[in-house]
Amino acid sequence: MSEKDIALLSVKDFLTPQMLKFAILPFIISLVVMYILFFIIAGIGIEQLGTLQVYSSQTTIQNGVPHTESLSAVLEDSAIIKFLMNYTITSWLATFLIYAIGGFLTIYISIFFAVVIIGFLTPFILREIQARHYKDVEMIGYGNILYFIFFAIKWTLAMLALFILLIPFYFIPLLNIVALNIPLYYFFHKMLTLDVSSSICTAEEEKQINFFNANKIRMKTLALYLLSLIPFAVFFGAIFFVIYLGHTYFVEVKKIRREI
């Protein structure tokens, strides 16, 4: 089956009533989470913008003895907010930056949550795909709940470590776009391939597929990740991601078992 055939078949499967029903749950949960996070992040930005910590100290010498006086104060609301909001340009720029950053972080966090949520629906989606197209391919699977929790925690920590290690690149134009997306793509790729492969094939089959098709699978997950960066696409797209990657693993598993 060619890549074009897999893509077209995935779209047809996604548009079936059953798959659209599956798409509703991650859409609702992710949308609620995104809505709440957006206003929390934007609210924190406004709060921090409206609060400024001022600290000063002065040392004097009296009779040869040094005396230090310190002053600590917090300027709230008026000083910064009033200055920015008194002028149309600064008001617009401040509001834009706060909500742009909030929206940017919200999209990233929504991708993280969508990947986690879709993990619970993956077996049901793949069974539907199997019943439609791969009745001759048994879904054996491997791993257990502790296995998945372990790797989810491991890859989350690795993602956070990558975010920290790549900080120097965040200040370089254009390169910062790539650097910001590498950690989340790493988590996206690992979780999505684990969810799909562990539901369909054995551990040995999964190793064999990754050995011979590693670059092809990475290209597919990268394309799916870039698609998820489109606002709101990840909400419905998460189901399509599983369907598309599911077809890939079903085809590869079928080839392996025919050769045995």
Rank of each mutant, 00 (worst) to 15 (best):
F235Q: 04
I260H: 13
H67D: 05
A223D: 10
W92D: 00
F150R: 14
V65G: 06
K12E: 15
T88C: 00
F104H: 07
A233W: 08
T88W: 02
F83R: 01
G43M: 02
V242L: 00
L224E: 04
K12N: 15
A7G: 10
T193D: 15
Y225M: 08
I209P: 02
T60P: 01
A223T: 14
L222M: 15
L52G: 12
S10Y: 09
I256C: 04
Y108E: 06
Y186G: 12
I140W: 04
S30Q: 09
L222N: 06
T90I: 03
Q130Y: 04
F171C: 08
Y55N: 15
E138T: 11
L126A: 09
V251R: 03
S91P: 00
F27R: 00
L8W: 10
H189C: 14
S199M: 07
L146Q: 08
L84Y: 05
M219Q: 11
F169A: 15
P123R: 04
F148I: 01
E206T: 05
L162A: 01
I217G: 01
T60H: 06
S199L: 06
D195E: 09
L227D: 04
G50S: 13
Q130K: 13
E47S: 11
L245R: 02
E206F: 01
V54P: 09
F14W: 10
G141V: 03
M34S: 15
T202A: 08
Y142L: 07
P123F: 02
F240R: 00
S110N: 02
F113A: 09
V196S: 10
T156S: 11
I80P: 04
L25H: 03
R127S: 11
F211L: 10
T202V: 08
S199I: 06
I40C: 07
G64A: 07
F112C: 05
K12P: 07
K254S: 10
K207C: 05
M1L: 12
K255L: 03
E138L: 12
K220E: 09
I101A: 06
S70L: 04
I6E: 13
V137C: 08
Y142V: 03
M219I: 08
L97W: 12
I145E: 03
P173S: 06
H247V: 01
I125D: 02
L97S: 11
S30R: 03
D13I: 09
G143C: 12
I140D: 04
I29N: 06
Y134E: 03
I80C: 04
I81Q: 10
I230S: 07
L15Q: 05
F104G: 07
P183W: 10
N215F: 08
I117F: 13
L184R: 13
V116N: 09
N181V: 13
F236S: 03
W92L: 09
F148Y: 11
T95C: 07
S56F: 15
S78Q: 13
L31E: 11
L175P: 01
E204Q: 07
F113G: 03
G43S: 08
E47Y: 11
G119I: 03
I41E: 06
A131D: 10
F211Q: 09
L75P: 07
